[in-house]
């Protein structure tokens, strides 16, 4: 209401009713945004959110675990690899790539040193 009355008392009357309505909405949203921001920026809100999160984790943790066990058992019955097994294989591929990168680095270093050595030998001969 404060936003509306402020808007109504500002400036001369205009034919732009849609514009005035939009202006009102903007001010109304901005006012609510400020109020919510103040409320959510408090320690109390952070504390409440933390508690909410904890209770969510307390509930979802066992449920997730039980569901995973059920699914794994089902997949094993069908002779299919479980999700964790597939993830394990993917993780091994990532590790393998890391190792190849390490080898590439070493190879680069060796090639570089060889080049430097060759250049130094050539310079010494000259």
């Amino acid at each position: 209401m404060a936003a509306w009355s402020k808007l109504m008392t500002q400036g001369p009357p205009s034919a732009d009713l849609m514009g005035q309505w939009k202006q009102f909405l903007d001010q109304w949203i901005a006012a609510w945004s400020k109020v919510l921001e103040q409320a959510m920026g408090t320690e109390t809100f952070a504390q409440a959110m933390g508690k909410q999160m904890e209770s969510f984790l307390n509930t979802s943790g066992p449920v997730k675990k039980a569901a995973e066990q059920q699914i794994d058992a089902g997949l094993a019955g069908l002779g299919l690899p479980s999700r964790s097994q597939v993830i394990g294989v993917a993780a091994q591929i990532v590790q393998l790539e890391d190792k190849i990168d390490g080898l590439e680095d070493r190879l680069d270093a060796v090639v570089k040193e060889l080049r430097e050595l060759t250049a130094a030998v050539k310079a010494a001969r000259a």
Binding site: G41, E43, A46, Q47, G50, M53, E54, L57, S60, K64
Partner: peptide, 22 residues
């Protein structure tokens, strides 16, 4: 860092539990 900093404060947000669970 503002509100994120407050919400992720160690007093209220147990990141270990969060990551270990999810």
């Amino acid at each position: 860092v503002g509100m994120f900093g407050q919400w992720l404060d160690a007093r209220y947000f147990d990141v270990d539990k969060y990551v270990d669970t999810l």
